[in-house]
């Protein structure tokens, strides 16, 4: 990694945190690192993090963390410039990694929304879709979650600092639930839980509180194109419908949430949209 140009101990990699369309929750997860935030500040030179500090230094940087999805023409241009400023680009959270909850617009009519919400919609520059960063530039590593898990973030940064390829588990939430000694909410309470097809990483927070997983860490295993097969959403959806008596639109809504536009969840929700329309 290149040497930082100013500030801090020499040799500390320079990190920047950028925001696109998002709620800032993932950035807050960084600020919520508590004691680890001090260690992070010592290990890295946090050069650009407007959410945290008005001391904003120019790039290039060694690591760029990107929160948020691309929803405006200006964002679509800005992400190209972010990519040029850092050799390592890591997306943080469901918005940047998968388009986020705002990707629900991909099924809607954005022009109609603008007319309903704004008195002068002609001033609103907005794309008709919300898309993940990876649809615009090459992404080196993706962190899932709404918000991200701070341990996963620390883990990835620790690995990068050590020169190790970061690797996070992609298996189901169920395995973490069982390790933690949670009772399965689906089997014991009949609650339609997305845990069996959702990627681990959150620490099984929701089932630990007796509620269902709603898939905020995205599909388990093969979420995007590339290695890994998509999870068996069809079988789980069928169980929601036949076993737990959800009607098709309820099954659709289970899959069309925070990560609704990621292919395995998107295709499952579309299959149930067709069933819903067929009546």
């Amino acid at each position: 990694m290149s040497q930082p140009k100013d500030h801090g101990k020499p040799g500390r990699p320079k990190m920047a945190v950028f925001k696109f369309a998002s709620c800032d929750g993932c950035q807050l997860s960084i600020l919520n690192l508590e004691d680890d935030l001090l260690a992070l500040g010592q290990a890295l030179d946090i050069a650009y993090f407007p959410e945290a500090s008005s001391d904003m230094r120019e790039g290039p940087y060694d690591i760029a963390l990107v929160e948020g999805s691309i929803t405006t023409p200006e964002d679509a241009r800005r992400i190209l410039s972010v990519r040029k400023q850092a050799p390592l680009l890591i997306t943080i959270g469901a918005c940047a990694t998968a388009g986020g909850i705002q990707a629900l617009r991909n099924w809607g009519d954005v022009e109609a929304f603008k007319r309903v919400v704004y008195p002068s919609p002609q001033y609103i520059q907005s794309l008709s879709t919300s898309t993940p960063i990876s649809e615009h530039v090459r992404v080196d590593f993706e962190l899932w979650g709404c918000p991200i898990d701070k341990e996963q973030l620390l883990r990835v940064i620790t690995d990068l600092l050590a020169g190790v390829q970061p690797r996070l588990p992609t298996h189901s939430v169920c395995i973490e639930c069982k390790r933690r000694g949670n009772v399965c909410v689906m089997v014991a309470k009949g609650i339609p839980c997305l845990g069996p097809v959702t990627r681990t990483g959150c620490g099984a927070i929701c089932p630990s509180m007796g509620r269902d997983c709603y898939g905020c860490f995205g599909p388990a295993e093969g979420a995007h194109e590339g290695p890994g097969l998509p999870p068996n959403t069809a079988s789980l959806a069928k169980e929601f419908h036949q076993g737990l008596q959800l009607i098709p639109i309820e099954v659709l809504r289970r899959f069309r949430g925070i990560n609704g536009s990621v292919r395995p969840f998107r295709e499952e929700s579309q299959a149930w949209e067709q069933k819903d329309r067929a009546g």
């Binding site: 395995i175 069982k178 079988s235």
Partner: peptide, 13 residues
């Protein structure tokens, strides 16, 4: 395989 979720619950319990 068309039914199995590969969630791992069987092996955990």
């Amino acid at each position: 395989a068309a039914r199995c979720l590969a969630c791992g619950n069987c092996t955990m319990v």
